[in-house]
Design a protein around this nucleic acid. Structure first.
Lengths: 116, 116
DNA sequence: ATGCTAATTAACGGAAGTGTTAAATTTTGG
DNA sequence: CCAAAATTTAACACTTCCGTTAATTAGCAT
């Protein structure tokens, strides 16, 4: 029972991490470009390095990005774990939002379904 | 171009709405039970009605729940639109987080892919 | 050691989020 | 109309979030 609550907390943390336009943009860019040093992420955004640094920490704590060191540089890349957590949750409710099912069917299926 | 930014904003709004344990729980419960009056949502949570009322407003503004009136009651139900927005985004990056693809393939495919 | 570059942490101010209690709104029923 | 019930809105306190500038840490080169 505690496990379920922990998962929910992790999920909330993932959502929180993406609930900011700057952070969402960072994740999108890392997914598109593979990996980037912190400096490259700062360039092209009009906020300062310390702010970005903390955004990166938030994303890292949420498991959405990873970091590796290379000299004085910190190279960041997207981490599938965090995104997969969101995907798992979303897909487990597919029956609800997928238009080929109606809401009633969704309610019935969820009752004794993936969450049980 | 402006359209894309708007979409991104909507997505951030959806994530923000779910970035709170109380609101996530409300959405989950509505998906599971179909529809509930505000009073039933208040009962079973240890926060007051006004707080819940504002949480419901946040979820409604994000397109995650819907409201209909019945007497003095306000009946809420999950709204697939908001969830589908998250699902669309997540699935459009499936190539990135799905373990059957590696990161390089994801980068290549995203470059001229679903986002173009 | 010194200096240079890259990045993070510290300290702080302002904006936004979350909860409470009290008041207002809306609808129903006598 | 008056009163009760269900919700929402108003006003307020408190905490968290987000950005800035200044200071610190860490690696590399001379």
């Amino acid at each position: 029972m505690r496990n379920k609550e922990r998962m929910s907390d992790e999920l909330v943390k993932s959502f929180s991490a993406l609930a900011d336009p700057t952070r969402l943009a960072i994740v999108e860019r890392l997914m598109a470009e593979g990996e980037l040093p912190a400096g490259d992420i700062v360039a092209g955004v009009d906020i300062t390095a310390p702010a970005i640094s903390r955004h990166l920490k938030v994303l890292r704590d949420a498991g959405l990005i990873r970091q590796r060191a290379e000299g004085t540089k910190r190279i960041y890349s997207a981490d599938a774990r965090g995104l997969r957590r969101i995907a798992d949750w979303t897909l487990s409710r597919r029956i609800y939002w997928d238009s080929q099912f109606d809401r009633l069917a969704a309610a019935i299926d969820l009752e004794g379904g993936p969450d049980a």
